[in-house]
Design a protein around this nucleic acid. Structure first.
Length: 398
DNA sequence: AGCACA
């Protein structure tokens, strides 16, 4: 399938370990040159971000259009180690048709300089205030050692909990939280990749799984395809109204063969889907029903992980998360298959969203002020829109 | 090739 993205084809990885002779010491910021100067600044920044962010949190991507600065960019990492691993793995990567050249920046980026200053100020202030100087610890071990008097038989759970409360896990959880915000802005397909790389990165970073909770948000609208052209709204109504929470059938004016079925709850939609997917609505047509799912992963509150039972579930949660990531991918592919055969335009996308937006206005006007529900619905609408827009634009630019 | 950020 041909998908248009703003991502350049990342073809040959000519990386290996051939570090360019490099006199510049490691830096938070990578200097990139030999970039394709034809790419527009915004897109370039976005693509660079998407490429480099797998190696760690990125503070900024700077690219400039001027004669002197074209073809170059700066990637500001929060962490030097991450900058280093990006430098090593992406060196000479074909990017928009040209092998990019990476080195450390000669000077610190302003943002880094500032935060270094702030840290220096704080430690100076601390030193001035406190008379017993804090012992300068050297090189913190990956997993904090047990307290000086290790209780003879710490249970596995207790060790686990101690680790969960470690600074490293907190940082990892933080990284995941940042990533979550970023995920919201990515099309579904890219979210899968990001979720996987976040898990991988955090897992290697702390040597164990980050405690994550996942929330699968289903959607109370079903997408039905392969309907015979003469299908009427009444016929579909007959079929679907037996399921609890049924609200409405929406045919798409000007488009044969598809329909949207709204429910007032996810579970009703799911049970209708399970019952009717593949249903032979006529001698020749077995209908196919797609239920769009959205999922969000977020770090578990590390305080909550003090609870033993929850800490037992961590591993299971993470593996479930991985499965969900794969599921999203599969579903996305499946959707694309459906949609590739159709002229799926914006009015169709809007029609799909019609139900959701109505739910939103219902919630808003009900005056119950359920913030949480509103956020979810609004978020789901945005994600759904992004996904649909992505699908639509992939036809446009074919 | 070219090292900036307001």
């Amino acid at each position: 399938m041909s998908i248009a993205t703003d991502q350049p084809m990342a073809t040959t990885m000519a990386n290996t370990s051939a570090p360019v002779p490099n006199s510049i010491p490691p830096n938070h910021t990578l200097y990139v040159n030999n970039l394709n100067a034809k790419i527009k600044k915004q897109q370039l920044r976005k693509s660079l971000y998407n490429l480099f962010v797998s190696y760690g949190r990125i503070h900024a991507v700077v690219a400039m259009k001027g004669v002197k600065m074209r073809g170059q960019a700066f990637i500001v990492f929060d962490d030097i180690q991450n900058a280093t691993s990006a430098l090593r793995s992406l060196q000479s990567l074909m990017f928009y048709g040209k092998p990019m050249r990476l080195s450390y920046a000669k000077r610190d980026s302003d943002a880094i300089r500032n935060s270094k200053e702030q840290i220096a100020e704080k430690t100076a202030a601390l030193a001035a205030m406190s008379q017993p100087e804090p012992k300068p610890r050297k090189e913190k071990p990956r997993i904090p050692p047990p307290p000086s008097q290790p209780p003879p038989d710490r249970t596995v759970h207790e060790q686990h909990i101690a680790m969960m409360n470690s600074e490293e896990v907190n940082r990892a959880a933080n990284a995941v939280a940042m990533a979550e915000a970023e995920l919201q802005e990515l099309p579904l397909r890219d979210r899968t990749r990001r979720i996987q790389s976040i898990i991988a990165a955090q897992t290697t970073m702390i040597g164990t799984a980050v405690p994550m909770m996942t929330e699968v948000q289903s959607n109370s609208t079903l997408f039905v395809t392969n309907l015979p052209p003469e299908t009427t709204k009444d016929a579909l109504e007959m079929l679907f109204r037996q399921f609890s929470g049924y609200l409405d059938v929406r045919l798409v004016p000007g488009r044969e063969g598809i329909a949207f079925i709204d429910f007032d709850n996810d579970a009703g939609a799911a049970s209708a889907r399970d019952a009717l997917n593949g249903f032979k609505i006529s001698a020749t047509n077995a209908i196919s029903i797609v239920h769009f799912f959205l999922s969000i992963a977020y770090p578990m509150n590390t305080l909550e992980s003090q609870n033993n039972r929850q800490s037992e579930e961590l591993a299971a949660k993470v593996s479930r998360l991985k499965h969900i990531a794969f599921d999203i991918e599969n579903e996305t592919k499946e959707h694309n298959r459906f949609l590739e055969n159709m002229r799926f335009d914006m009015s169709t996308a809007r029609s799909f969203l019609g139900g959701s937006t109505r739910h939103l206005s219902n919630v808003m006007s009900s005056g119950r002020g359920d913030r949480r529900a509103m956020c979810y619905i609004a978020g789901a609408i945005i994600l759904a829109f992004l996904f649909l827009y992505y699908v639509v634009s992939s036809f446009r630019t074919k």
